[in-house]
């Protein structure tokens, strides 16, 4: 096979893959714009924003989306702050149990935490935390922490200690050197971790579904499920419009950090403790 042929073969394959991935999206986009949408992605020449208008109300879209922003936002900020603090000594000092700790974290990353939602519900109920948004956020943050600490430490390792030493000479403590010197330099890393956690929680359905009580507290992930199961076979267009409104923020955020994303997935060399 010549190079040119190989190149074309690769391009054709990539086109096929791309189309296959675009396929399932088609319906959502088309149906959301068609006033009489059904389950088939078949465009007619009548486009309208009726479906969007129909779902853009407090109970269907605004309240759940605001809840999602609060839940995902506080989880992301809390996780990043706590992980950033924890990463500092792990990155900067020689500590006796560091290797063990890092390996434990890695081990924890692997535990299927969502698989234990039943006992988690039981525990939340027993300690009177069922229905509490702050308690759920703490649980979400804890489950995101191991991975976040890992990533933060890796990013922090990339910031040269020499820069910090200059700050130490000036008499700055670790708090100041972390805030003034390290944090700005790892801004891209912080952004990646924040968005990683945020988007992860944005789509999280199981945890709020089990741990929150009333509809007023539910994030969009849960209300869209209710909408899907209740109106999914009737109001296709509205379901599609709701899907797009709900998905858009996650996609936009990812596009924003796409540039830095690839670098965070290098696993080789990240396990040397």
């Amino acid at each position: 096979m010549t190079r040119v042929a190989a190149r074309w073969a690769a391009l054709v394959s990539l086109t096929v893959v791309t189309l296959a991935f675009v396929g399932p999206f088609l319906w959502v986009v088309l149906a959301s714009l068609q006033p009489e949408a059904n389950l088939t992605a078949k465009p007619t020449f009548r486009f309208s924003l009726e479906n969007y208008a129909a779902v853009l109300n407090w109970e269907t879209v605004f309240r759940p989306v605001i809840n999602s922003i609060i839940i995902s936002g506080t989880t992301a900020v809390l996780t990043v702050v706590v992980a950033g603090l924890a990463a500092y000594p792990l990155s900067r000092y020689k500590l006796r149990f560091k290797r063990h700790f890092m390996l434990t974290l890695l081990f924890t990353t692997g535990l299927p935490v969502t698989a234990i939602m039943v006992p988690v519900y039981s525990m939340f109920f027993r300690f009177n935390l069922y229905g509490s948004v702050p308690a759920m956020v703490l649980f979400l943050a804890a489950s995101a922490l191991p991975f976040a600490i890992w990533m933060m430490k890796n990013f922090m390792d990339g910031v040269p200690v020499s820069l910090e030493e200059a700050a130490w000479v000036d008499g700055a403590g670790w708090v100041r050197s972390l805030l003034r010197v390290v944090a700005p330099l790892m801004a891209p890393g912080v952004a990646v971790v924040t968005i990683f956690v945020f988007v992860g929680q944005w789509g999280n359905f199981f945890v709020p579904f089990v741990l929150l009580d009333t509809p007023e507290k539910q994030p969009a992930a849960v209300t869209i499920y209710t909408f899907f199961s209740q109106y999914g076979q009737v109001a296709y267009g509205q379901l599609a419009a709701f899907s797009i409104i709900y998905t858009a923020p996650a996609v936009v955020l990812y596009v924003a950090v796409n540039k830095y994303l690839a670098g965070s997935f290098s696993f080789a060399g990240s396990v040397k403790g």
Partner: peptide
Amino acid sequence: VAIAATAGACGGG
């Protein structure tokens, strides 16, 4: 404090 904060926050409802 951490536990109390959580417990207090949930009692609010």
